[in-house]
């Protein structure tokens, strides 16, 4: 019968659990430090990503303190208050103590809410007027992009005109604005080209099911919802090639729904655009 546990049994269990919890703290800290060099957020390449990362690091710091505090207390208590034949204290209420750990988390949460709300509204503010505007479309299983022609307008879409080869964006031939639209397959043959330090508004469509437009390096993710056009804007800050992933389950080949994005200087971008249009 467990209540007849020998004192040594209790002592062993208490010691084991205390040590295990202490080791857990050590392991969590050590592996997190080790992970920073190998398994961490990909290098940052966008303006809004800086604030996001800062907020994440701040939150991570707060929760790490709480993690260490709770596990430390737990380890301490199981060791100190193991059954050594003493009598437990009949202590079950302390309003001041309870209010303390009601109010402190409440204050911390209020702080986090305010800072996150500010950043969130900045991320979802109206894009600046000089922003580049592109459309991307998710489909089973790849991404396509559309740039407006020299007229700066996106042409009308009508699914009845869809043709996988000739008219993959289902542009309406009757619309003059659609004539000069540039449609690229950014999963296989082409790339999404963006300009460094120039804000870009990406309008996101879906052809069949839900997808999610995810560029890890930019800290950007927005679902592609059939029947809707969602949008997100951001400013790339580093030139180079980056990954586009699909982050919403979209079917058996979801895992290969990868796209490519290239950030260039304005001159390189202009040259690429002129060449591709001709």
């Amino acid at each position: 019968m467990p209540t007849n546990d020998t004192t040594s049994g209790t002592r062993r269990s208490a010691a084991l659990l205390g040590i295990a919890l202490a080791l857990l703290i050590v392991a969590a800290v050590v592996t997190t430090l080790a992970a920073r060099s190998r398994w961490w957020l990909p290098p940052l390449a966008s303006a809004q990503g800086r604030s996001i990362d800062q907020l994440f690091i701040a939150t991570f710091g707060i929760i790490s303190v709480a993690f260490v505090l709770v596990h430390g207390l737990l380890a301490l208590f199981v060791w100190l208050y193991r059954d050594r034949g003493q009598r437990a204290s009949y202590w079950h209420e302390n309003r001041a103590l309870e209010l303390t750990y009601t109010i402190i988390p409440a204050i911390v949460m209020t702080g986090l809410t305010l800072s996150a709300a500010g950043l969130w509204s900045r991320i979802h503010s109206a894009p600046p007027p000089q922003a580049l505007v592109v459309e991307v479309r998710g489909e089973q299983f790849g991404w396509k992009a559309r740039y407006p022609g020299p007229d700066g307008k996106f042409g009308r879409i009508d699914p009845r005109h869809y043709s996988a080869r000739e008219n993959p964006w289902a542009l309406d031939p009757a619309d003059p604005a659609a004539q000069d639209d540039l449609v690229l397959d950014i999963s296989t043959t082409g790339e999404l080209h963006l300009v460094v330090d120039r804000p870009v508004e990406v309008r996101i469509r879906a052809k069949d099911v839900l997808h999610s437009f995810f560029i890890p390096a930019f800290r950007v993710k927005q679902d592609a919802v059939p029947g809707m056009v969602t949008s997100i804007w951001f400013t790339p800050t580093q030139t180079g090639p980056y990954e586009i992933a699909c982050a919403e389950l979209c079917g058996p080949l979801h895992y290969i729904m990868r796209g490519k994005v290239v950030v260039q200087t304005q001159e390189e971008y202009d040259a690429w655009l002129a060449q591709t249009r001709s």
Partner: peptide, 10 residues
């Protein structure tokens, strides 16, 4: 707080 000054059986 329940564990504080308790008599813990494992």
């Amino acid at each position: 707080a329940t564990l504080w000054r308790a008599k813990i059986r494992f």
